[in-house]
């Protein structure tokens, strides 16, 4: 069984051999959990449809704004779109990924991997990939379904919308990684994530989207990753200005929190 094994060499201390298999297996196993794929992929669409179809007046053009305002003539459900995209970003990064990683730590999966040539970072990266793809698919699904059901105006600044979405993902996945790094157990990760998730949804406009957000919420929200993402996408979608502050806020969250998350991360 072992006689042909070559003598070990000191050359390699870390390896990504088998990462493709790891990513495929993790995806297959992850899909068997109903909750994670549902929340990551369908939740934004469900919320968009629920808000648009169930709340009266959401599909009636806004006429109580000044006629020269950018909001005049838009449907309220359309102004909700940046919030739903931000929600797609926040759900996978904050509610699904940190709990998965904390569960793996708690069960000793990360430690078990440490004894194989695969580095435990591999499984973290695999779940970053899975959840990033989930976010994009969830956002795209909401856009397509929303377009078919409600019809939306095209974004004023498509490039800035995409940039805001990508920076929002970077900032929120960093935050999720920070939660995964410090939570000792899956239950703690879930608790921390939820206590961040709902205030962030509030600041991203889940209850008061775009034009109807109170000024104080907007002021606070612009300094949080998800609030900044929603505001930045709102500006880019409907208005002319460049959301510089919000983009900087998201970049700073990423640049500052990512090294902290990496430093605090425990494998067992």
């Amino acid at each position: 069984m072992t006689t042909t094994a070559p003598a070990p060499t000191a050359a390699r201390t870390g390896s990504w051999r088998g990462f493709g298999r790891l990513l495929r297996t993790e995806t297959a196993v992850w899909l068997r959990d109903f909750a994670a794929p549902f929340f990551g992929i369908l939740f934004p669409t469900v919320i968009l449809l629920g808000v648009g179809l169930a709340i009266p007046g959401m599909r009636d053009p806004i006429t109580d704004a000044p006629p020269d305002s950018v909001w005049y003539g838009l449907t309220p459900v359309a102004t909700y779109l940046p919030t739903v995209l931000a929600m797609a970003v926040g759900t996978a990064s904050l509610t699904v990924m940190p709990v998965t990683i904390a569960t793996y730590r708690e069960k000793g999966v990360l430690r078990r991997l440490s004894t194989t040539p695969m580095r435990p970072q591999g499984i973290v990266v695999a779940h970053l990939v899975i959840n990033a793809v989930t976010t994009v698919v969830g956002a795209a699904l909401a856009l397509v379904v929303g377009q078919l059901v409600f019809g939306f105006v095209a974004p004023e600044q498509l490039g800035v919308v995409v940039l805001s979405f990508v920076l929002g993902m970077a900032a929120m996945f960093t935050l999720g990684m920070l939660v995964a790094a410090v939570a000792p157990r899956a239950s703690a990760a879930n608790a921390i994530a939820m206590s961040l998730y709902f205030p962030m949804l509030l600041l991203a406009g889940l209850w008061t989207p775009g034009p109807i957000m109170p000024e104080v919420l907007r002021q606070i929200g612009q300094f949080t990753p998800l609030g900044a993402a929603a505001q930045s996408m709102t500006t880019a979608w409907f208005e002319q200005g460049f959301p510089l502050l919000q983009l900087i806020v998201m970049a700073v969250w990423t640049v500052v929190a990512l090294p902290v998350a990496i430093r605090l991360f425990r494998w067992s």
Binding site: T2, P8, A11, R12, T13, K107, V109, R111, T115, P117
Partner: peptide, 18 residues
């Protein structure tokens, strides 16, 4: 530690799989 992982199999006490 990396140099022996290909040749050292480890079974830890507690179960560690999804």
């Amino acid at each position: 530690p990396g140099a022996v992982r290909d040749h050292l199999g480890v079974q830890l006490q507690e179960a560690a799989l999804h």
